[in-house]
Simulated scan of single mutants.
Amino acid sequence: MANTYTQCYFHLVFAVTNRDALIQKKWKGQLEKYITGIIQDEGHKLLAINAMPDHIHIFIGYNLNQLIPNLVEQIKTSSNKWIKDSRLSKFQFSWQKVYGCFTHSNSQIDSVVKYILSQEQHHKKNTFKEEYLKILNQNDIKYDEKYLFDFWEDVFCD
């Protein structure tokens, strides 16, 4: 539509099933490039992406022509298949069904990009669960713990 302008920024977070540390450093860059291609093919602008061994952060300038759940499903389904077809993981790879999606303003772009790109340093101090709960609380999101990611560091074996 003529004279219609939008500006939306979304921070997506999702985790590997069982929070298994299956994303290896030797192919994480390839995974990030593959997901970048999906995002760009759908008309979104990738601002930052960083895969950790057990989860991923993606920050995009959002194209309103696609629903976020559809984009996340497309990223997860396509990347699962690509990882399997490329035989990158010795173990069965899949993403958890749940995900987080958080909005940011234009003035927050630099800080969110820096945050995502510094994940390795960040996780030397904080667990993924601590990080995710902090994001939920900072955004004043009410949540039920039973619907969050499977945080396996809470499980103790005898």
Results as ranks from 00 to 15, higher is better:
S78F: 06
I75R: 05
I75H: 05
Q74W: 01
F91R: 01
F102T: 02
Y99S: 10
V98K: 15
Q66N: 14
V72Q: 03
K81N: 13
W95C: 04
Y62V: 10
Q92E: 13
T103C: 10
N80C: 11
L88H: 00
G100A: 08
C101Q: 10
L64C: 13
F102G: 00
Q74N: 12
I83W: 03
P69Q: 05
T103I: 06
H104R: 11
F102H: 01
K84E: 10
L71I: 13
P69H: 08
K84Y: 06
L67P: 09
L88N: 01
N65L: 14
E73T: 11
K97C: 07
Q92I: 11
Y99W: 08
G100Y: 09
L64T: 15
K84M: 09
Y62T: 09
T103K: 00
S79N: 03
K97E: 14
K81E: 12
S89W: 05
C101E: 09
T77C: 04
K97Q: 14
W82Y: 14
L71F: 02
S94V: 01
W82T: 08
Q92V: 07
Q92F: 10
D85A: 10
N63K: 07
S78W: 05
F93D: 05
L71M: 05
N63C: 06
L88S: 01
K81I: 13
Y62C: 12
E73D: 12
Y62K: 14
I68T: 00
K97H: 10
P69G: 07
N70F: 08
R87Y: 11
L64E: 15
T103R: 02
Q66F: 13
N70L: 11
Q66W: 13
E73S: 12
K84Q: 12
W82V: 05
K76R: 02
L67A: 15
S79V: 03
H104D: 01
N63H: 12
G100M: 07
N65R: 14
N80H: 05
E73M: 07
Y99D: 11
C101F: 04
W95T: 03
F93L: 07
K81C: 08
R87G: 05
E73R: 14
K76Q: 01
K84N: 11
K76F: 02
V72D: 02
K90W: 02
S78M: 10
S89V: 09
V72E: 01
D85K: 06
S89R: 07
F91H: 06
V72K: 01
L67H: 13
P69V: 08
Q96E: 12
F91N: 02
L88K: 03
F91K: 02
Q92R: 11
K97T: 14
R87H: 11
C101K: 09
N80F: 00
V98S: 14
L71Y: 03
F93E: 07
S89C: 15
R87K: 15
Y99L: 09
N63W: 00
P69Y: 04
G100R: 07
S79P: 08
E73L: 08
S78K: 15
R87S: 05
S86V: 05
I75W: 09
Q92G: 06
K76A: 00
T77Y: 08
F91Q: 04
Q92M: 08
K76W: 01
L71V: 13
T103A: 09
E73F: 07
I83M: 10
C101H: 04
S89A: 14
K76T: 01
R87C: 07
